[in-house]
Design a protein around this nucleic acid. Structure first.
Lengths: 373, 373
DNA sequence: ACAGTTTGTTCGTGCGCTTTACTAACCCGC
DNA sequence: GCGGGTTAGTAAAGCGCACGAACAAACTGT
């Protein structure tokens, strides 16, 4: 009596998968806890020293980790020889395609710090021309790198599927563009492409203070979001999770939006509109920002309630977001969701600034290359 | 240069884990596709016939699967001997604690069909008295079972953590009650406890038509929801994902709610309020229901947009939900979210009726005992 | 009768991790 | 200065798991 049920979610599992998994585990442990001895690794991972030695030998062979000599410490017993990820031996190329006027790229080290940056003005390029600009930007940065590049991460506006195909990015004139595969073929490097707000959420999790259940709202010319649930990104049924810019807020109208509706979140929060309103009435700056924050809170309350989020992080121009706007958003969220559970809810600005997308793109490469790909 | 980053999400992985995983894979394949030969299983799972034979032998030893003789089919080659999960050899005990006036339990077969039902009037019991009632209900049904019971699944109102501790269930007077462990100890059976709306979402996924990205909204005395993302339940930072009953809807006030706020989703949608409104103005029945649906749409639009949900399933009294209410909710969702992505969005009533929580509780046991626990 | 096909099992191999046992290198105390 | 205690790392043997090759069993078709 077969059912059409789809409880089958597991995939076949072989011993060699376990090996890859444990390999990632070693790398993750080194990455987050820093240099340590093989014995430390064994204790941290729960694997035996023997297995760890074997795995480390393999990683040394791949030049992903390096030995750093013995630990200078006075203890009984044989001194430990420290091993660590080769943090200076690789760079990651992070690219941000989300600004409206330019593509931005940088070489980052494995800890997510930027070292070389390049800005490529967009000059209205779109379609194939825009693809060529991405390629040029990548090539220029690759040429600058003195060490091998672990991979290329790209945060793109629009809807991007899990294979790095840009399903739609209106501003760049892209539709069903297999950006990830094309760049990988042209550059000969591993490439990962994802939505800009989604990688920003990754950045906030990896390099910022974000918890494992977080929503990152990216406010700029448009409004987008990335949702982290249990430490992993939500992608959605059609890969458009986080596309909240055109959700209507409230039940009292609002300004018309380019999408044809009235009162979309973007009409309340997009930075050009905020700045225009402030320019029109500089004296009411705080009121304008507070009202925008209130709208954000109204829109997010059902999401925060439904997902039981612990925090909302705002990314965008700090001078607009960090003051009355964030405060009003938090107050509104508190007054519109259940009291018992939002005691520790927070709404705060990101500390990662303008580089958040490039850093998130790098974090994506890190987890793709070091994690359980 | 260690970071505080918590990219470390992997756990150590041993060959025996792979074994358990493949064991589950075999069970899941049999469960969803029905009886088949060992060779069929090998083809379906990607494992070799040798490995499948070994796994099946193990499962036969545990009496979880049975041989059903040879397939009567005229083909070249040795006739296949069919194996299947022992669908008649087990029952699952499903219990629904979510009704306001009674606990309900049933014995279900592995395909989720109900066979014996028991209703235990609550008579205002709460606290320890309510726990005793659950225990009595379980014992009575266990006594009725003619075959072994695979496990006990319970859908409870309130907030339940992943260990089956009821953190808070005000109507039952429960706080930090380790219901799962207590029942497991008293009954000597595996017990799983989760939130009622969450297990209802599981039911809709396992036994209904729900896709892998779905929100199930359970409307009764209160309003709750269960969120399925990629086929797995969202639990939330504080295990209260889906608790949307007290999210304020709209920006135009509303009726006062027991929680102290005005315009909570419950004030718009809870069935007692709907029925009271209809009783007060029977002629406007459709308008009342449509306005309630509109409110639901307003509340869910940000969630549907943010999570990119493909469908919303409503569970509750069909005579209230299935007509104007669902239609208005869908229309409102469409008019308040992005056009490109809601083309195939649907809002529909569940076909599982009143038994949805018991069946969901059974589905939880199934995936706990057959799946990758 | 015999070739061809499909099922299910037996046997030997390789991989991955573990336990046990070992060496290396340090501290301390006598 | 020399053995006892401690910790790091490696070597050898064993066990669990899945695989490929080979084989026996049982059917169909000519």
């Amino acid at each position: 009596m077969p059912l059409r049920s789809s409880l089958r979610t597991t995939a076949k599992s072989l011993p060699e998968h376990a090996r890859g998994n444990n390999r990632s585990l070693v790398l993750q442990t080194l990455y987050s806890d820093g240099a340590m001895s093989r014995a430390d690794l064994a204790r941290a991972t729960g694997l035996t020293r023997v297995t760890i030695s074997d795995l480390v030998a393999e990683l040394l062979g791949d030049a992903l980790v390096v030995e750093q000599g013995t630990r200078d410490e006075s203890r009984p017993g044989k001194p430990a020889t420290l091993v660590d990820i080769d943090r200076t031996g690789f760079r990651i190329l992070g690219i941000d395609l989300s600004a409206h006027d330019a593509f931005r790229g940088a070489l980052l080290d494995l800890d997510g710090r930027l070292h070389d940056r390049v800005t490529a003005p967009l000059d209205g390029a779109s379609g194939e021309l825009a693809v060529a600009k991405v390629l040029d930007l990548a090539r220029e940065l690759i040429a600058r790198a003195a060490v091998p590049i672990l991979g290329v991460g790209i945060g793109s506006p629009g809807v991007v599927d899990l294979a790095g195909i840009v399903l739609t990015a209106p501003n760049l004139g892209w539709h069903d563009l297999p950006l990830q595969d094309r760049l990988a073929a042209d550059l000969g490097l591993p490439v990962l492409v994802a939505n800009d707000a989604n990688v920003a959420a990754l950045a906030e999790h990896s390099f910022g203070d974000a918890l494992s259940d977080t929503m990152l709202v990216k406010i700029g010319n448009g409004v987008g979001a990335g949702l982290l649930v249990g430490g992993t990104l939500l992608s959605g049924a059609r890969f458009s999770a986080g596309e909240i810019g055109h959700v209507v807020v409230g039940t009292d109208g609002g300004e018309p939006c380019a999408c044809g509706k009235r009162g979309c979140l973007e009409t309340w929060l997009a930075t050009p509109r905020l700045e225009a309103r402030i320019a029109a009435d500089p004296g009411d700056r705080d009121g304008i920002l507070a009202r925008a924050g209130e709208r954000l809170g109204i829109a997010l309350a059902p999401v925060v309630g439904a997902l039981d989020l612990a925090e909302v992080v705002l990314s965008g121009p700090a001078h607009l977001l960090d003051g009355p706007l964030a405060r009003a958003a938090l107050d509104t969220l508190r007054s519109r969701t259940m009291a018992e559970f939002h005691g520790d809810l927070s709404v705060r600005g990101s500390a990662l600034g303008e580089d958040i997308v490039m850093r998130g793109a790098a974090a994506m490469v890190l987890s793709g290359r070091l994690g359980v790909s």
